[in-house]
Simulated assay, not measured.
Amino acid sequence: MKQIQYIDRESGQLCIEKIPGEKWLKWLYNKPFGRLSLHYLIKRKFISSYVGKYMDTRKSTCYISDFIRNHGIDLLEYKKEKLEDYKTFNDFFCRKIKPSARPIDDDFVSPADGKILAFKNIRNVKEFFVKGASFNLEEFLGSEELADKYKDGSMIIVRLAPKDYHRYHFPADGIIRKANDIKGHYYSVSPLALQKSLRIFCANCRSYSILETQKYGDVLYSEVGATFVGSIIQTYAPDSHVKKGAEKGYFAYGGSTLVLLFEKGKIQIDEDLLENTANGLETYVPMGRKIAS
């Protein structure tokens, strides 16, 4: 299997992603016994819940220093600057960032630190994921009405790797509605897994809410869980007016994904994101950077 490449938007460089547990993931998704383990065990909630609970214990702090060193994380960007300030691995994983480390740009901004795929029309998604089954909007949302509302619109996927800052924010000002939870499994959202099928998003546990904006219409904002993601935590007040850059919630331990859906003609996604996606590449963009207008 070829290496996973992406574009770092700020430097313009083509980078190779370092995937935690890469050999294990390749075995799970490419070998017969691995696929059996995935289907009958790894995708189950109790596995992710068990790992999540362990990461809430004091014993889990032993993993923090190696994680920081292996992934080049700068603690000075975060509100807790010292290793000893973190009481559990999840305390570190859900760390809060200093506002100065993520300035908020004008227009529509990235809701999280992550690698972006952008589609001007949702119908074009199947052209990117050639190897996988088609992305079914009605199945993803669990609603025929919502699927019809966004079927000809645009979509942005923001994939958070385990090393990323794991709080997510509002990409625009607006009124945010109550979150709707959809039960599901806990497949990995690693690019090694997504190469197989984007239908993982339709199978995993997920949550969505509507951000009503004056400029961009009703933006559907969905959080998708993954293997070892113990929880999707919403920290906002439903039916309240929110400001761009304010925190919406966070993921507990693991990699995870945000999916943003837009009504037809309501947004213009930045051309470099569309072009990179068309070339089969994700683009890494920090939270708060402009991604559309």
Rank of each mutant, 00 (worst) to 15 (best):
T227C: 15
L220F: 09
G230Q: 15
P191T: 06
F201V: 03
E223K: 07
G225V: 03
G230L: 09
D218S: 14
G230P: 10
E223R: 09
N204E: 04
L194I: 14
N204Q: 05
Y216W: 14
R199P: 00
S207C: 13
V219S: 11
G230N: 14
P191V: 00
S188L: 04
Y186M: 11
G230W: 05
S190Q: 01
T227W: 03
C205W: 02
S207V: 13
Y186V: 04
S209N: 12
S222P: 03
Y186I: 11
P191Q: 09
C202Y: 03
Y187Q: 03
L198G: 06
Y221N: 10
G217L: 06
Q195V: 02
E223W: 02
S207E: 12
I232N: 05
Y187T: 02
C202E: 15
K215L: 15
C205A: 12
E212Y: 00
Q234F: 08
V229H: 03
V224Y: 01
Q214A: 15
S197Q: 11
C202P: 07
R199M: 13
V189E: 01
I200D: 00
C202T: 14
N204Y: 01
L192C: 02
C202S: 13
F201C: 12
V189W: 01
V224I: 15
Q214D: 15
I233A: 04
F228E: 08
L194M: 09
S231R: 13
S207H: 09
I210F: 04
L211N: 02
A193M: 07
T213P: 13
Y221C: 12
V219K: 09
I200Q: 00
L198N: 06
A203V: 08
E223A: 15
K196S: 01
S231A: 14
D218R: 13
C202G: 10
S222Y: 03
I200H: 00
